[in-house]
């Protein structure tokens, strides 16, 4: 789909993937997340060649948010916590939702939230799970100004704590300015010639 790319993300670094529509940004992120097979290539965490070590340390959030429509916000987070073998208290989850701007929505079904609130709910999983690598596909889409600022601050804090973030974003000058790497996906040679 796209020409070969290769990059190293050091702790505290942010990479932004750019490319035209259909250039394969989502495909690359999904492949890195382990949701689709890399035809050639690999992702490694630190010195470990084992792919599962990479997967254990990364968290992917794509266009499909993964909220269950007829579970409440709290139930959604509780499920993600227990499926990831993370133990959290009800109080911690309430604080998390408050931080995500979802205070008062704890017992609302995810279905009844607005598009932006659904995104906030999904993004709050990042804070709960504490993974080193964040793979985010268009995380700013649907968020209002406050939400964008919240996410920006969240990414900045994560980088300061030694995490690394790989994301795609359109029209986000602030996040582009923060980026250490700009990865541009070019059509592969085979496709150009055809």
């Amino acid at each position: 789909m796209f020409a070969p790319v290769s990059f190293i993300l050091q702790p505290g670094q942010l990479a932004v993937i750019a490319g035209a529509n259909g250039s394969g940004k989502t495909t690359l992120l999904e492949a890195l997340a382990g949701l689709s097979l890399l035809r050639r290539g690999e992702a490694r965490f630190a010195q470990s060649a084992e792919q599962h070590v990479w997967l254990q340390n990364s968290h992917y959030l794509g266009h499909k948010l993964g909220n269950k429509a007829n579970l409440t916000c709290l139930e959604n987070l509780q499920f993600v916590a227990s499926i990831n073998a993370t133990s959290v208290t009800q109080h911690q989850l309430e604080l998390l939702l408050e931080e995500a701007g979802l205070a008062g929505y704890e017992y609302q079904f995810a279905n009844d939230l607005s598009a932006g609130q659904k995104k906030r709910l999904a993004l709050s999983r990042l804070l709960m799970l504490n993974k080193t690598f964040w793979l985010l596909d268009e995380p700013f889409v649907n968020l209002d100004h406050g939400g964008c600022d919240w996410l920006y601050a969240m990414i900045e804090r994560h980088l300061k704590q030694g995490g690394a973030v790989l994301l795609t974003a359109h029209d986000q000058k602030k996040i582009h300015a923060l980026a250490d790497h700009h990865i541009t996906l070019q059509p592969s040679a085979a496709e150009v010639s055809s």
Binding site: H59, L65, G66, N67
Partner: peptide, 14 residues
């Protein structure tokens, strides 16, 4: 698969 929650448990390492 459609709401993406398949990814949540497939990627959880379960």
């Amino acid at each position: 698969f459609e709401d993406g929650s398949l990814g949540v448990y497939v990627l959880s390492g379960m």
